[in-house]
C-alpha cells in the first residue's frame, strides 16, 4: 500500500504534545501546533536547540511518549491513516515495521545480554513471523548492508565487543530490518567521531537511496542538515519557526532565529572575524512569554512581536515562517 502520489508519506497537522507535571500545575508545551510533511525518498532535517521539543516530536510520531506526556491535539497522517487515532495494538504493527527509529546512544539501544544476530533478527521475527534460522541469515545480510566486515562472525558477538561506530551501524541495521517506509534518526551521530560520522552519514544516504526510505534527521548541527537533507524544519521553543527546502533556507532565511543561527556558526574559511552571537537564552517552555517566543532575543523584534503570537505564514516555494516580518514580506511580494 503506497501513499497516493498527491499525498505526502507523513503529514502532521497542528500537533501539540504537552508534558503535565504530577500535580497538574506545570504544563510544558514541548510540541506546540507543529505541522510538517515528508514524501517518500525525502530527507527532512529537524534542527533546534536543546529542549526545543525535537525528541518529543519524534516520540509523538511513534506514540511512545513517557506517561507524563500527552498528545493534546492534531493529526498525523501516515500512508493515509491517522496515527493519532490508532489503537495501541495497531500502533505496534506500525512501529519497527513501517516506521523505525534510531536513537542517539547506541549502547543504550542494544541489550548487552543478547548477540548481535539475535537483536538484528528480532524485528523480522516479530513482524514477519520468520523462523529463527532465516532471521539469522537476514541479520547477516543486514550487517553486510551497513558495511560491517565479516558479518558471519559479528552476528555471534555481543554489543560490548564492538566499537561505538559499529554499534551505531548495528542500531541502523535493526532500524532497516523490516524495510520501513520512514526512518526517524534522533541525533544518531553525536556520540561518533568526525571520520566515523562521515562514514555513517554516507551509509545512511546510500541506504536511503537503495530502499527509497523517507528519513527524518533530528540534529542540532546545521552542518549535517547542509550535507544530508532536502527539507528543513527549524524548531524553537516547541514551535516550528521556519520550514522549507534546505538550500533556499540557507540562502535566504526568513525567520530571524534561523538567520541568527546560521550567522553564529564559525566557518572553516573565515579568518578571525567576530561571530554574530544570539544574545540571551531560550525561554522556559512552561511559562512562555506572550507574543513570539523568540522576541526577547530577536534583533528585529518590534511592538507587535511582544504582544501577539505570529501564526505560520505560507511563503512562496513551499516555505513557511512564524514571524510577523514574513507576513510583511509576503504582502509586499504579492503586491
Amino acid at each position: 500500500m503506497a501513499a497516493t502520489p498527491n499525498r505526502p508519506l507523513l503529514e502532521i497537522d497542528n500537533l501539540s504534545t504537552h508534558y503535565v507535571s504530577a500535580q497538574g500545575t506545570r504544563v510544558v508545551r514541548a510540541v506546540d501546533d507543529v505541522s510538517l510533511r515528508i514524501s517518500a525518498g525525502e530527507t527532512l532535517g529537524i534542527v533546534g536547540e536543546s529542549g526545543s521539543g525535537k525528541s518529543t516530536l519524534a516520540l509523538s510520531i511513534l506514540r511512545v511518549l513517557p506517561p507524563a506526556a500527552q498528545i493534546v491535539s492534531g493529526q498525523m497522517w501516515f500512508e493515509n491513516e491517522d496515527l493519532v487515532r490508532k489503537t495501541d495494538t495497531e500502533m505496534r504493527h506500525v512501529r519497527g515495521k513501517r516506521i523505525a527509529m534510531i536513537l542517539q546512544d547506541p549502547m543504550a539501544s542494544l541489550n548487552p545480554l543478547f548477540t548481535i544476530g539475535n537483536q538484528v533478527g528480532e524485528p523480522i521475527r516479530v513482524h514477519e513471523g520468520t523462523r529463527r534460522a532465516a532471521a539469522w541469515r537476514r541479520a547477516c545480510d543486514l550487517l553486510k548492508a551497513v558495511r560491517i566486515p565479516s558479518p558471519e562472525t559479528r552476528v555471534t558477538q555481543f554489543p560490548h565487543e564492538m566499537s561505538g561506530g559499529m554499534r551505531q551501524r548495528i542500531v541502523g541495521a535493526i532500524g532497516i530490518a523490516c524495510e520501513p517506509r520512514l526512518l526517524i534518526a534522533d541525533e544518531p551521530t553525536t556520540s561518533l567521531d568526525l571520520t566515523i560520522q562521515a562514514q555513517y552519514l554516507s551509509l545512511l544516504r546510500d541506504l536511503q537511496r537503495e530502499h527509497g526510505l523517507a528519513l527524518i534527521f533530528i540534529t542540532h548541527n546545521l552542518g549535517i542538515v547542509a550535507k544530508m537533507c532536502d527539507q528543513l524544519v527549524v524548531m524553537y521553543a516547541g514551535r516550528v519557526v521556519e520550514s522549507g527546502p534546505v538550500s533556499r533556507i540557507f540562502n535566504a532565511p526568513a525567520h530571524p532565529y534561523t538567520k541568527a543561527l546560521l550567522n553564529s556558526i564559525p566557518r572553516m574559511t573565515d579568518n578571525r572575524n567576530r561571530l554574530t552571537a544570539i544574545e540571551g537564552q531560550p525561554p522556559d517552555l512552561s511559562s512562555l512569554p506572550r507574543g513570539c517566543s523568540f522576541a526577547a532575543r530577536c534583533p528585529a523584534a518590534f511592538d507587535r512581536c511582544h504582544k501577539e503570537t505570529p501564526p505560520e505564514f505560507n511563503l512562496e516555494g513551499g516555505r513557511t515562517a512564524r514571524c510577523w516580518l514574513a507576513s510583511v514580506a509576503m504582502q509586499s511580494g504579492a503586491a
Binding site: H220, L222, P266, R274, L275, T276, A277, I278
Partner: peptide, 11 residues
C-alpha cells in the same frame, strides 16, 4: 553548550 549560546562564549 547550546548551538545558539556557543558564539557568545567564543566571542
Amino acid at each position: 553548550l547550546d548551538v545558539s549560546i556557543r558564539a557568545q562564549i567564543l566571542n
